[in-house]
Amino acid sequence: MSNSNEPMTGPVTSADRPAPIQAIPVRHWGQMIAGVIVIALLAAFLYAVATNQNIDWSIVGENLFNSTILSGLWITISLTILSMIIGIVLGIGLAIMRLSPNRVLNSVAAGYIWIFRGTPQLVQLLLWFNLALFFPRLGIGDFSVDTNTVITAFVAALLGLGLNEGAYMAEIVRGGILSVDHGQSEASMALGMRRQKTMFKIVLPQAMRVIIPPMGNDLITMLKMTSLVTVIAAPDLLNRAQTISVRNFYIFELLIVASIWYLVLTTIATIIQSRLEKRFARGIAARPSTRARVLKNLKPGRVESIAAVTEPNATPEDHGVKS
């Protein structure tokens, strides 16, 4: 039945190619047995959960799109995005400071990274939330406000997550910057480009290829990390799920509701991440449109963006700097 027994009818090019090897593959008995055991255990677990009389699956269904849950979901999404933005901006700044020949800038950035990476995220959240204990009022001289009105649970959460992320992002960005061949910035400087432009036009765009994968990981970590803000009573997804279960006592069901949403979010984030990675893995030959878009998102409203160079007919107005 094999092809080799039949007359060759294919294209001429394959005429003198030998028949593919037909051999009985090595059987991995150990792997097969392990596979069977794992599947059996998994099935038993799923059966136990699905048929457990103590889990009321209808409660899960009823609460999945409950408006309280959805409001928590929204808070979780916005906390994630805003904290990541704070983290990225801060991270770029800190990374540049860290690589600067200026000792003071360098040490300040190193100290920042040391403190924020060396203390637990949860402790940082609690510190921001309790800021009013040390600084009852914030401001200078006559212009000050009650700390508790400014540092709401949401703001404390944002500060706690964003400032912490900045420290991690700084190391990621620094790694990305160091991955770009020194000849690139040298060529840029030799053309008369200033240090800052060299960084933002030449080095950082190329560092993105190295920065994006770990940044995607951080985004996913951040999605889950936001659940920590529950302890400072920020109304995130977990917190909303818990306020419902406090009333109806379906603790496990509502944790499942929250878990389903976390899974949805992390899955979406993972898909976005792998898309971005693929774009940037093409790396040096990346389509300018992608790059331009990412860059534009990084620093909105700059006139001389790469996009401006790419699109010959684009006027500055196209890039949103008119106003």
């Binding site: 690139q184 060529a187 840029s188 053309l191 008369g192 480009m193 432009k197 036009k201 030449i202 765009p205 190329q206 790396g283 040096i284 990346a286 300018p288 790059r291 001389e304 790469i306 160079v309 790419t310």
Partner: peptide
């Protein structure tokens, strides 16, 4: 500059500098 086309490479400095 590895992230720019030949043309963009040549155009870069006069525009930016």
């Amino acid at each position: 500059f590895a992230h720019m086309t030949a043309l963009q490479n040549v155009m870069m400095a006069p525009i930016q500098v």
